[in-house]
Amino acid sequence: MKSLKNWLMLALLALSLGLSAQAMADKASKPFAEKRVVLQISDPNPFKQTLVLNVANNLLKHYGPDKVDIEIVAFGPGLRLLFADNANKGRIKRLVENGGVRFSACSNTIRNMGKKLGHPPVLNPNAVKVSAGVVRILDLVDQGYVLIKP
């Protein structure tokens, strides 16, 4: 029993250390950023894909890549934006390479879509899996990010 308690304590410690490290890493990628923005894409409308990428692009143009930190979190039907063959893959690549934009993919959605597809969807190499899209957004908001849902 004592041993189980120790393991749980250890696990909680590791989790909190991990989250802290992740939070530090989020901000560390843009140490001089004056604005921190999380963009949500969860809509099935393809126009929203274009819109969210446009917003990210406009933020980068306005503030400059070093002054704004952007993460796009995709979950639900919006996860299609991060499919490997998505027609916007070129724009995503440019936003990552030129603007340091991060893309997060919801693992819950990946799992559910995998059930419908019969196999897990193949994701864009620039997408980073997070446990749950909505949790990721809440964590970023807690860290001071402003949530925008175009």
Binding site: P44, N45, P46, Q49, T50, R80, L81, F83, D85, N86, A87, N88
Partner: peptide
């Protein structure tokens, strides 16, 4: 290529971003 000519414009949809 993605979609760029009559064959593609009429016969295909943009991958991952086409409506139902």
């Amino acid at each position: 290529a993605s979609a760029a000519n009559w064959l593609m414009l009429q016969g295909t949809e943009p991958a991952g971003s086409a409506p139902r």
